[in-house]
Design a protein around this nucleic acid. Sequence first.
DNA 1: GTAATGATTGAATAATTGTTCAACTATTAG
DNA 2: CTAATAGTTGAACAATTATTCAATCATTAC
Lengths: 119, 119
Amino acid sequence: MNLKKQPVCDCHVIHEDIVERVRATMPKGKDFYDLSNLYKMFSDHTRVRILWALSCEDMCVCDLAVLLDMTKSAISHQLKSLRLANLVKYEKQGKVIYYSLADSHVKDIFEKGFEHIHE
Amino acid sequence: MNLKKQPVCDCHVIHEDIVERVRATMPKGKDFYDLSNLYKMFSDHTRVRILWALSCEDMCVCDLAVLLDMTKSAISHQLKSLRLANLVKYEKQGKVIYYSLADSHVKDIFEKGFEHIHE
DNA sequence: GTAATGATTGAATAATTGTTCAACTATTAG
DNA sequence: CTAATAGTTGAACAATTATTCAATCATTAC
């Protein structure tokens, strides 16, 4: 324990000043871990369409399966990931479970993304 | 050619009205393809740190390798992906190549992401 | 010219991940 | 009770992908 990791970088620093300035303001590792996990939820064709659909209306697994022409199982697996990432929540009403967006950030993220891809 | 794909959905639609309303406003497939590819660039721990670093200062491969404690090769491979996604550009000055963000959307996307993960 | 350095490349490997399949739970209708 | 339907689950499989390694290119210094 308490072992210092061996550096793996295979070169010498060229601009020590730049590296130090950037390092000084760098968020902690966990932030980048959380951030990349958040965007991972938007990085899949299926998930991004699910999120977009839920940004229009609350929907159940069957509706999403019909809309996206996929099996209920595939949709359910992805909804589980989205649930664990706190991007969607659900409400049970009898046999049917209605999924919805967990908060408003999802719409903001969509907006920025569409802005970029539309030049 | 011109074959109609067999639907794979394994259930009946529950709320036809909802599905039709959502389908009517759904962006075209290519948009979701582009959008998920954009966010894929933010979905990896290494790439997201590279982008963040470049949002602070222009940097060369060596600087990034030192900062993130990785090999030049690993950094270079990821920079290539980012270049192909039009998120970074570069400028050659002698032996050194300076990478920088290609446009301002990257910073906006970071902002929204950090907003979300910080509750 | 040669040596050294910054950077890229392609192939190989290892890890991750999306979908399918079959089995399962929970609720409702008859 | 049974049958039907909405949804979940875990294992298996296929596809994708991040890093490593070794070789290579480009520029500069000698």
